[in-house]
Design a protein around this nucleic acid. Structure first.
Length: 492
RNA sequence: GGCCCCAUCGUCUAGUCCGGUUAGGACGCAGGGCUCUCAUCCCUGAAGCAGGAGUUCAAAUCUCCUUGGGGUCACCA
């Protein structure tokens, strides 16, 4: 039944967004599959939340697409082990129930939700959350069971966990992991309405989909014990299981990263324009490493795959560290062909009004050149050149540079007059400017500072002559003349 | 609280399985270089084995305890 080929799955429930932890689980599964020539399956666990199904699904699909984690089988691409929506797999569960009934692996439980809640309350005066089902209905005489069944009394099916006993499985990451059955209750497999509970459905789905390796977050560890018990009750082969560490919330917060901490949704990173490959590298480096020293060059996806080993995944939880993401993403951006970067930042520039409709390829290329060493994600691009698209507002330091530099008004006017008739390359403007400052015995640095202030209103900008080219001759002259007036006024 | 998992610089980690290293790298931080500013890039530096016992000639590494962190305890997934 179990195929020879490695098969892993990513099984998110559609909550409306893709959590960063889920994405990392997907990534580890994907890397594992790619590394071993296996199959990466996407299964949607949608048995509970039916609302906003389309929208919630889109978030998962789009998130995976952005990350470049393409499923081999799933709702979109189909496959031989469908359906890939858990909600459509209902009929397959009944058979497993029958099998367990025959093998005496389960028993009907007539306890009401009310009785269970009450018991939970009583135990430890309401403070003890560790109450487990006491097995009340497991001890019921067969005759009484038959009678109540016949009477049509509502019931659930519970797993008859071997007592006493213990269960151990060899975790791919943690090694042998054990739990005593005394600490596991006879969990409900089938609800009173006949639907399977999560753990039961997962086991059946994974088995029927021939999943060989289950890789998921450590928060599923206790589920895994239960699921192993279910596999064993059914006499099915238990897949290999590995529990990856969790991502914890950044400093002021404690606990695992959640939506309320911010930065937990993949879409945020996509919207900000992080480089997807850089993002994937960052995700992979949380709780895993090559074993060799980290390189300063961007790490290619192929390299990630070639070196991936689930056994090297860290056991300890990791705290989220966005500054490292910035560094990695920036590294990828810097290594990008300029034309590609131009294409990526274009929508951000347009949205911010930093790229007029009539702007040509040349202007965009020039902006990309200015932006490339200065940003870590695309949304930072407009702020690098925004001064070019509105009248300069002189920052205090810039104002001081104009008003406080001796002779500024005079040399600015002279500079504007000698400017070449056409602005071609920044380098040409630079050599002209150097000649100009030399001829007038100006320190180039001081001269450039004043011109920079004049053109941009700021003291920190992209290279000065890139700025001038961006403005064009006419606007450059206009701004210099205006600044000269400010400089003159300041002196008076 | 019960059970389970975990513990190396501020953060992510290599080293732990098969005890012997100046405990390595990256991010961040500090200083310097390059330079028309900023940034990029390059160099340098500060910074760590949670604590305590035990085993051993020798412990980050093996054992135990403590402390700390995390997860999980539903007719949710």
């Amino acid at each position: 039944m179990i195929s020879e080929r490695i098969r892993v799955r990513f099984a998110p429930s559609p909550t409306g967004y893709l959590h960063i932890g889920s994405a990392r689980t997907a990534l580890f599964n994907w890397l594992f599959a790619r590394r071993h020539g296996g199959v990466f399956v996407l299964r949607i666990e949608d048995t509970d939340e039916q609302r906003n199904k389309t929208e919630a699904l889109a978030a998962i699909f789009e998130g995976l697409r952005w990350l470049g984690l393409d499923p081999d089988e799933g709702p979109e691409q189909g496959g031989a082990y469908g359906p890939y929506f858990q909600s459509e797999r209902g009929p397959t569960y009944a058979e497993a129930v029958k099998q367990l009934e025959r093998s005496d692996g389960i028993y009907p439980c007539f306890c009401t939700k009310e009785r269970l809640a009450q018991r939970r309350e009583q135990r430890g005066g309401g403070g003890d959350a560790s109450w487990h089902y006491d097995g009340h209905c497991r001890a019921l005489p067969a005759a009484e069971v038959a009678e109540r069944l016949a009477a049509g009394e509502p019931y659930t099916w519970r797993l008859k966990i071997p007592r006493p006993g213990a269960t151990t499985f060899n975790d791919l990451i943690h090694g042998p992991t054990t739990v005593d059955h005394a600490d596991v209750e006879d969990l409900i497999l089938v609800r009173a309405d006949g639907t399977p509970t999560y753990n039961f459905a997962v086991v059946i789905d994974d088995h029927l989909m021939a999943i060989t390796h289950v890789i998921r977050g450590q928060d599923h560890l206790t589920n895994s014990f239960k699921q192993v018990l279910i596999y064993e009750a059914l006499g099915w082969e238990v897949p290999a299981m590995g529990h990856i560490s969790l991502i914890l919330a950044p400093p002021p917060h404690t606990g695992k990263l959640s939506k309320r901490h911010g930065g937990a949704e993949i879409k945020e990173y996509q919207d900000k324009g992080y480089d997807p490959d850089g993002f994937v590298t960052w995700l992979a480096m949380i709780g895993w490493s090559f074993g060799k020293d980290e390189e300063k060059e961007p790490i290619a996806r192929e390299e990630l795959i070639a070196n991936f080993d689930i056994a090297n995944a860290g056991k300890a939880n990791a705290r989220m560290n966005p500054s490292k993401l910035n560094a990695i993403s920036g590294r990828h951006i810097r290594a990008m062909p300029p034309a590609e970067l131009a294409r990526k930042i274009e929508p951000y520039l347009r949205a911010a009004g930093c790229l007029p409709p009539d702007a040509g390829e040349a202007a965009l290329a020039l902006i990309a050149e200015c932006v490339q060493p200065r940003i870590d994600f695309f949304a930072q691009a407009p702020a690098i050149v925004d001064w070019a698209f509105k009248d300069p507002v002189y920052e205090p330091d810039a104002l001081k540079a104009l008003a406080g530099t001796a002779g500024a008004a005079e040399f600015l006017r002279a500079y504007a007059e000698t400017l070449p008739a056409a602005f071609a390359a920044p380098a040409d403007l630079e050599s002209h400017a150097r000649d100009f400052s030399t001829a007038r015995a100006l320190k180039f640095g001081a001269f450039a500072k004043a011109v920079r202030a004049a053109l941009t209103g700021r003291l920190q900008t992209p290279p000065l002559f890139h700025c001038a080219c961006l403005l064009g001759r006419e606007e450059t002259v206009r701004r210099i003349e205006r600044a000269a007036e400010v400089a003159a006024g300041g002196k008076a």
